[in-house]
Protein backbone atom coordinates (compact mmCIF):
# COMPACT_ATOMS: atom_id res chain seq x y z
CA UNK A 1 0.00 0.00 0.00
CA UNK A 2 1.38 3.35 -1.02
CA UNK A 3 2.05 5.96 1.59
CA UNK A 4 1.69 8.85 -0.77
CA UNK A 5 -1.80 10.18 -0.88
CA UNK A 6 -1.20 13.35 -2.81
CA UNK A 7 2.51 13.90 -2.45
CA UNK A 8 4.97 12.53 -4.96
CA UNK A 9 8.67 12.13 -4.53
CA UNK A 10 9.41 14.76 -7.14
CA UNK A 11 7.47 17.47 -5.37
CA UNK A 12 8.45 16.34 -1.89
CA UNK A 13 11.89 17.88 -2.01
CA UNK A 14 12.70 20.05 0.97
CA UNK A 15 12.57 23.79 0.43
CA UNK A 16 16.22 24.31 1.28
CA UNK A 17 19.05 22.88 -0.74
CA UNK A 18 22.09 21.28 0.84
CA UNK A 19 22.31 18.51 3.41
CA UNK A 20 19.35 17.65 5.63
CA UNK A 21 21.71 17.39 8.60
CA UNK A 22 25.05 19.12 8.85
CA UNK A 23 27.01 18.82 12.09
CA UNK A 24 30.52 20.10 12.68
CA UNK A 25 32.60 19.64 15.80
CA UNK A 26 29.59 19.01 18.03
CA UNK A 27 30.49 18.95 21.69
CA UNK A 28 28.45 18.20 24.76
CA UNK A 29 29.63 18.43 28.30
CA UNK A 30 27.75 17.65 31.51
CA UNK A 31 29.70 19.13 34.37
CA UNK A 32 33.21 17.73 33.96
CA UNK A 33 32.07 14.91 31.75
CA UNK A 34 32.58 15.27 28.01
CA UNK A 35 29.94 13.14 26.34
CA UNK A 36 30.49 14.34 22.78
CA UNK A 37 34.04 15.28 21.87
CA UNK A 38 33.68 16.74 18.40
CA UNK A 39 31.17 14.89 16.26
CA UNK A 40 30.97 15.60 12.53
CA UNK A 41 28.20 14.17 10.42
CA UNK A 42 26.10 15.02 7.41
CA UNK A 43 22.99 13.46 5.91
CA UNK A 44 21.85 14.19 2.39
CA UNK A 45 18.14 14.52 1.62
CA UNK A 46 16.59 11.08 1.20
CA UNK A 47 19.48 9.29 2.85
CA UNK A 48 19.10 6.66 5.58
CA UNK A 49 21.79 7.15 8.17
CA UNK A 50 22.28 4.61 10.95
CA UNK A 51 24.08 5.53 14.14
CA UNK A 52 25.65 2.57 15.91
CA UNK A 53 27.56 2.48 19.14
CA UNK A 54 27.73 0.92 22.57
CA UNK A 55 25.53 2.22 25.37
CA UNK A 56 26.86 5.48 26.75
CA UNK A 57 28.67 6.39 23.54
CA UNK A 58 26.51 9.49 23.10
CA UNK A 59 23.98 8.32 20.50
CA UNK A 60 20.91 9.54 22.33
CA UNK A 61 22.57 12.83 23.24
CA UNK A 62 23.49 13.42 19.60
CA UNK A 63 20.00 12.65 18.37
CA UNK A 64 18.37 14.81 21.05
CA UNK A 65 20.53 17.77 20.10
CA UNK A 66 19.51 17.36 16.46
CA UNK A 67 15.85 17.07 17.49
CA UNK A 68 16.12 20.35 19.39
CA UNK A 69 15.40 18.64 22.72
CA UNK A 70 18.78 19.44 24.18
CA UNK A 71 21.08 22.43 23.88
CA UNK A 72 24.65 21.62 22.82
CA UNK A 73 27.77 22.91 24.55
CA UNK A 74 29.61 23.82 21.33
CA UNK A 75 29.79 23.19 17.61
CA UNK A 76 27.78 24.00 14.52
CA UNK A 77 24.52 22.19 13.89
CA UNK A 78 22.15 22.67 10.99
CA UNK A 79 19.02 20.55 10.64
CA UNK A 80 16.83 21.23 7.59
CA UNK A 81 18.68 24.50 7.23
CA UNK A 82 18.06 25.75 10.78
CA UNK A 83 19.78 25.62 14.14
CA UNK A 84 17.71 23.18 16.26
CA UNK A 85 18.27 25.28 19.37
CA UNK A 86 16.17 28.07 17.81
CA UNK A 87 14.22 26.03 15.28
CA UNK A 88 10.71 27.37 15.82
CA UNK A 89 7.37 25.66 15.23
CA UNK A 90 7.34 25.71 11.41
CA UNK A 91 10.72 23.95 11.49
CA UNK A 92 9.42 21.51 14.07
CA UNK A 93 6.51 20.64 11.77
CA UNK A 94 8.96 19.34 9.16
CA UNK A 95 10.53 16.84 11.59
CA UNK A 96 9.23 13.54 12.78
CA UNK A 97 10.37 11.97 16.03
CA UNK A 98 9.58 8.41 16.99
CA UNK A 99 9.66 8.35 20.77
CA UNK A 100 9.82 5.33 23.02
CA UNK A 101 6.42 5.47 24.62
CA UNK A 102 5.99 4.28 28.12
CA UNK A 103 2.73 4.97 29.89
CA UNK A 104 1.71 8.37 28.54
CA UNK A 105 -1.85 8.87 27.28
CA UNK A 106 -2.83 5.44 28.61
CA UNK A 107 -6.53 6.29 28.83
CA UNK A 108 -6.75 7.82 25.36
CA UNK A 109 -8.07 5.84 22.46
CA UNK A 110 -5.63 5.02 19.67
CA UNK A 111 -7.37 6.86 16.84
CA UNK A 112 -8.31 9.79 19.07
CA UNK A 113 -4.67 10.30 20.07
CA UNK A 114 -3.31 10.02 16.54
CA UNK A 115 -5.97 12.34 15.13
CA UNK A 116 -5.28 14.93 17.84
CA UNK A 117 -1.54 14.86 17.16
CA UNK A 118 -2.21 14.93 13.41
CA UNK A 119 -4.29 18.11 13.73
CA UNK A 120 -1.23 19.96 15.08
CA UNK A 121 0.29 19.80 11.58
CA UNK A 122 -2.64 21.21 9.60
CA UNK A 123 -1.40 24.85 9.54
CA UNK A 124 1.97 23.68 8.22
CA UNK A 125 0.68 21.86 5.15
CA UNK A 126 2.31 22.71 1.82
CA UNK A 127 1.44 21.85 -1.77
CA UNK A 128 4.31 19.37 -2.04
CA UNK A 129 3.77 17.83 1.38
CA UNK A 130 0.14 17.82 2.45
CA UNK A 131 0.01 17.65 6.23
CA UNK A 132 -1.17 15.75 8.16
CA UNK A 133 -1.49 12.29 6.67
CA UNK A 134 -4.89 10.63 6.54
CA UNK A 135 -5.21 9.09 10.01
CA UNK A 136 -7.23 6.02 9.05
CA UNK A 137 -4.92 5.17 6.15
CA UNK A 138 -1.95 5.53 8.49
CA UNK A 139 -3.52 3.24 11.09
CA UNK A 140 -3.99 0.74 8.27
CA UNK A 141 -0.35 1.14 7.21
CA UNK A 142 1.04 0.43 10.68
CA UNK A 143 -1.43 -2.41 11.26
CA UNK A 144 -3.49 -0.77 13.99
CA UNK A 145 -6.74 -0.26 12.09
CA UNK A 146 -8.34 -3.00 14.16
CA UNK A 147 -7.33 -1.23 17.36
CA UNK A 148 -8.53 2.29 16.48
CA UNK A 149 -10.92 2.42 19.42
CA UNK A 150 -8.70 0.55 21.88
CA UNK A 151 -7.27 2.31 24.90
CA UNK A 152 -3.55 2.97 24.44
CA UNK A 153 -2.82 1.20 27.73
CA UNK A 154 -4.44 -1.96 26.39
CA UNK A 155 -1.96 -2.27 23.49
CA UNK A 156 0.86 -4.80 23.58
CA UNK A 157 4.45 -3.55 23.58
CA UNK A 158 4.82 -4.12 19.85
CA UNK A 159 1.51 -2.42 19.10
CA UNK A 160 2.55 0.61 21.13
CA UNK A 161 5.74 0.83 19.12
CA UNK A 162 3.68 0.79 15.94
CA UNK A 163 1.65 3.66 17.36
CA UNK A 164 4.88 5.48 18.18
CA UNK A 165 5.95 5.11 14.57
CA UNK A 166 2.56 6.34 13.34
CA UNK A 167 2.81 9.42 15.60
CA UNK A 168 6.32 10.04 14.26
CA UNK A 169 5.28 10.10 10.61
CA UNK A 170 1.75 11.52 10.84
CA UNK A 171 3.05 14.99 9.90
CA UNK A 172 4.69 13.66 6.72
CA UNK A 173 8.17 14.65 7.92
CA UNK A 174 11.05 15.58 5.66
CA UNK A 175 13.43 14.28 8.30
CA UNK A 176 12.61 11.42 10.64
CA UNK A 177 14.45 10.47 13.84
CA UNK A 178 14.13 6.91 15.05
CA UNK A 179 15.68 5.88 18.35
CA UNK A 180 15.80 2.08 18.53
CA UNK A 181 12.52 1.77 16.65
CA UNK A 182 12.20 -2.00 16.53
CA UNK A 183 13.06 -2.89 20.12
CA UNK A 184 10.34 -5.35 21.13
CA UNK A 185 9.16 -6.10 17.58
CA UNK A 186 8.55 -9.66 16.47
CA UNK A 187 10.21 -10.68 13.18
CA UNK A 188 7.06 -9.96 11.13
CA UNK A 189 6.63 -6.50 12.67
CA UNK A 190 10.31 -5.82 12.08
CA UNK A 191 10.00 -6.72 8.39
CA UNK A 192 6.88 -4.57 8.05
CA UNK A 193 8.74 -1.72 9.65
CA UNK A 194 11.68 -2.09 7.29
CA UNK A 195 9.29 -2.01 4.34
CA UNK A 196 7.76 1.15 5.75
CA UNK A 197 11.17 2.82 6.02
CA UNK A 198 11.96 1.94 2.41
CA UNK A 199 8.63 3.36 1.27
CA UNK A 200 9.20 6.57 3.21
CA UNK A 201 12.53 7.16 1.50
CA UNK A 202 11.44 5.95 -1.96
CA UNK A 203 8.06 7.61 -2.21
CA UNK A 204 8.50 10.76 -0.15
CA UNK A 205 12.23 11.37 -0.13
CA UNK A 206 12.28 11.32 3.67
CA UNK A 207 15.70 11.58 5.29
CA UNK A 208 16.07 9.16 8.17
CA UNK A 209 18.44 9.07 11.11
CA UNK A 210 18.12 5.86 13.06
CA UNK A 211 19.88 4.45 16.09
CA UNK A 212 19.81 0.75 16.78
CA UNK A 213 21.62 -2.11 18.42
CA UNK A 214 20.40 -4.49 15.75
CA UNK A 215 23.28 -4.80 13.27
CA UNK A 216 21.20 -6.84 10.88
CA UNK A 217 18.72 -3.98 10.80
CA UNK A 218 21.50 -1.45 10.25
CA UNK A 219 22.80 -3.49 7.35
CA UNK A 220 19.35 -3.77 5.77
CA UNK A 221 18.33 -0.13 6.10
CA UNK A 222 21.42 2.03 6.05
CA UNK A 223 22.78 3.93 3.10
CA UNK A 224 25.54 4.87 5.48
CA UNK A 225 26.52 3.68 8.94
CA UNK A 226 28.31 5.76 11.55
CA UNK A 227 29.91 4.18 14.56
CA UNK A 228 29.96 6.42 17.58
CA UNK A 229 32.35 5.49 20.35
CA UNK A 230 33.50 7.54 23.29
CA UNK A 231 31.94 10.74 21.98
CA UNK A 232 33.43 10.58 18.48
CA UNK A 233 32.51 9.10 15.14
CA UNK A 234 35.19 6.45 14.80
CA UNK A 235 34.09 4.90 11.53
CA UNK A 236 31.74 5.71 8.71
CA UNK A 237 30.66 4.01 5.50
CA UNK A 238 28.28 1.45 4.04
CA UNK A 239 27.93 -1.87 5.86
CA UNK A 240 30.11 -3.41 3.17
CA UNK A 241 32.84 -0.82 3.45
CA UNK A 242 32.96 -1.11 7.22
CA UNK A 243 33.15 -4.88 7.07
CA UNK A 244 35.98 -4.73 4.56
CA UNK A 245 37.80 -2.15 6.63
CA UNK A 246 37.90 -3.89 9.97
CA UNK A 247 37.06 -7.48 9.23
CA UNK A 248 39.83 -10.05 9.29
CA UNK A 249 39.24 -11.42 5.80
CA UNK A 250 36.85 -14.21 4.93
CA UNK A 251 35.53 -17.44 6.24
CA UNK A 252 35.59 -20.27 3.70
CA UNK A 253 33.49 -23.42 4.13
CA UNK A 254 33.47 -26.43 1.86
CA UNK A 255 32.88 -30.15 1.77
CA UNK A 256 35.57 -32.54 0.63
CA UNK A 257 35.30 -36.32 0.60
CA UNK A 258 32.18 -36.12 2.71
CA UNK A 259 33.93 -34.03 5.33
CA UNK A 260 33.03 -30.47 6.24
CA UNK A 261 35.82 -27.84 6.45
CA UNK A 262 35.91 -24.29 7.80
CA UNK A 263 38.89 -22.04 7.26
CA UNK A 264 39.50 -18.39 8.11
CA UNK A 265 41.52 -16.77 5.35
CA UNK A 266 42.82 -13.19 5.20
CA UNK A 267 42.35 -13.26 1.41
CA UNK A 268 39.34 -15.42 0.59
CA UNK A 269 39.74 -15.28 -3.18
CA UNK A 270 43.37 -16.37 -3.13
CA UNK A 271 42.59 -19.19 -0.75
CA UNK A 272 39.72 -20.48 -2.89
CA UNK A 273 41.84 -20.34 -6.06
CA UNK A 274 44.52 -22.44 -4.39
CA UNK A 275 41.96 -24.81 -2.92
CA UNK A 276 40.40 -25.50 -6.30
CA UNK A 277 43.76 -25.85 -8.01
CA UNK A 278 44.82 -28.50 -5.50
CA UNK A 279 41.64 -30.48 -5.07
CA UNK A 280 39.50 -29.56 -8.06
CA UNK A 281 36.27 -31.56 -8.28
CA UNK A 282 36.66 -33.05 -4.82
CA UNK A 283 35.53 -29.70 -3.39
CA UNK A 284 31.76 -29.21 -3.15
CA UNK A 285 29.31 -26.91 -1.33
CA UNK A 286 31.80 -24.06 -1.40
CA UNK A 287 30.79 -21.03 0.64
CA UNK A 288 32.78 -17.82 1.09
CA UNK A 289 31.59 -15.38 3.68
CA UNK A 290 33.15 -11.98 4.03
CA UNK A 291 33.59 -10.55 7.51
CA UNK A 292 30.21 -9.11 8.42
CA UNK A 293 29.21 -5.74 9.79
CA UNK A 294 28.87 -7.52 13.09
CA UNK A 295 32.52 -8.55 12.96
CA UNK A 296 33.48 -4.98 12.14
CA UNK A 297 31.35 -3.55 14.88
CA UNK A 298 32.50 -6.04 17.51
CA UNK A 299 36.08 -5.28 16.63
CA UNK A 300 35.48 -1.53 16.96
CA UNK A 301 33.75 -1.93 20.29
CA UNK A 302 36.41 -4.33 21.57
CA UNK A 303 39.15 -1.84 20.71
CA UNK A 304 37.13 0.92 22.31
CA UNK A 305 36.44 -1.01 25.48
CA UNK A 306 40.05 -2.02 25.96
CA UNK A 307 40.79 1.70 26.07
CA UNK A 308 42.42 1.90 22.67
CA UNK A 309 39.79 3.98 20.94
CA UNK A 310 42.27 6.51 19.68
CA UNK A 311 44.48 3.74 18.32
CA UNK A 312 41.50 2.13 16.68
CA UNK A 313 40.47 5.36 15.04
CA UNK A 314 44.03 5.99 13.86
CA UNK A 315 44.41 2.47 12.59
CA UNK A 316 41.21 2.84 10.61
CA UNK A 317 42.27 6.15 9.19
CA UNK A 318 45.52 4.67 8.06
CA UNK A 319 43.88 1.99 5.96
CA UNK A 320 44.02 2.46 2.25
CA UNK A 321 41.24 3.70 0.04
CA UNK A 322 39.07 4.94 2.86
CA UNK A 323 37.19 8.15 3.13
CA UNK A 324 34.96 9.92 5.51
CA UNK A 325 36.57 8.94 8.76
CA UNK A 326 36.24 11.72 11.20
CA UNK A 327 37.83 12.24 14.53
Amino acid sequence: MALTDGASASTAASPHSGPAIDVRDLRMRYGDNDVLKGVDLTADPGEVLVLLGPNGAGKTTTVEILEGFRVRSAGEVSVLGADPAVGGEAWRARLGVVLQSWRDHGNWRVRELLAHFAAHYAPYSTAGRPRPRDVDALLETVGLAGHARAKVSSLSGGQRRRLDVAVGIVGRPELLFLDEPTAGFDPQARRDFHDLVHRLTDEEGTTILLTTHDLDEAEKLADRILILADGRIVAEGSADELARRVGSGSEVRWVQDGQRFVHAAPDGTAFVRELLEQHGDAVTDLEVRRASLEDAYMEMVARHESGRTADAARALEGLEGLEGITR
Binding site: E89, L99, P123
Partner: peptide, 20 residues
Amino acid sequence: TEREDGTLLRAKALPDGMAV
Protein backbone atom coordinates in the same frame (compact mmCIF):
# COMPACT_ATOMS: atom_id res chain seq x y z
CA THR B 1 3.80 12.96 36.41
CA GLU B 2 3.36 13.80 32.74
CA ARG B 3 6.85 15.17 32.49
CA GLU B 4 8.15 11.87 33.79
CA ASP B 5 5.95 9.55 31.75
CA GLY B 6 6.77 11.18 28.42
CA THR B 7 3.54 13.11 27.82
CA LEU B 8 5.42 16.41 27.78
CA LEU B 9 8.11 15.02 25.52
CA ARG B 10 5.42 14.10 23.01
CA ALA B 11 4.06 17.63 23.21
CA LYS B 12 7.55 18.99 22.61
CA ALA B 13 7.92 16.89 19.47
CA LEU B 14 4.80 18.42 17.89
CA PRO B 15 4.57 21.84 16.25
CA ASP B 16 2.99 24.21 18.81
CA GLY B 17 2.76 21.14 21.03
CA MET B 18 3.89 22.78 24.29
CA ALA B 19 1.49 25.73 23.92
CA VAL B 20 -1.38 23.38 23.11
